[in-house]
Amino acid sequence: MRRELINRHAPFVLSLTAGMALWEVVGRYSSPAFMVPLSATLKKLWQLIIGGTLITQFLDSAALFLTGFVLALLIGMPLGLLLARVRGLRVGLEPYIMILYATPMVALIPFILSMMGFGFAPKVLVVFLFAVFPVLYNTIEGARSIKPELIEVARSFRSSEWSLWREVMVPYTLPYTMTGVRLAIGRGLVGMVAAEFFLSSTGLGQMIMTASQNFDTAGVFAAILVIALIGIAMMRLGRRIETHFARWRN
């Protein structure tokens, strides 16, 4: 049992240790203008934590990310189901969705800036735009793959349109949506940092910018590390939720 556990996790632990060692060694031999070793990064991180800066900035970023992300979910999923169900709407809107999904959202930031200025709302919009399309797209694809036979079964049992959504469309589509959600987490984080860079500077993005301007490489790395860890944690959570909703698939 114990041995099995060791065997299973050994490659991961080894590779992680090697990576950290490499970072440490390369960091020690490079100019601190580019890179600092892991130990220096962690030390800086610790200072930022006890100094309170990290917590404030983290909460700031989290509020931005969550608002944009939750909006992306709340709009992406129902809209996806609606588009899957109403053919005319889908055919009409699909080209725009494809174009926006394919457009690098960063390109839209100057436009958003000139339209909406520097408040919280334009930043939320950026996160939203980054995150919504994978959710929307995967929901549409998922909902469209429902077997027509099952819709017919629902009709045969006199399902109302609302029941059809609740009992058939949503549970069937959720695993697909969750795949989109996992993609949306990554993209949403990019959107968050981009918004914090290019719109009013706040949060972890601002930390990176300020540290970089002060040639505080350790500070830059510390902030990046935090963002990366958040990303990993959220992706894992997303995967969990995805498997939970897909447990009926063999």
Partner: peptide, 27 residues
């Protein structure tokens, strides 16, 4: 009126219990 389908038409995300109770819930 109720139909039994050649392709079974069970909802794969519902348990036996939830499949059997489906028609009752719809009613």
């Amino acid at each position: 009126m109720a139909m039994v389908f050649q392709h079974f038409g069970l909802f794969p995300w519902k348990t036996v219990y939830d499949n059997v109770s489906y028609g009752l819930r719809m009613a």
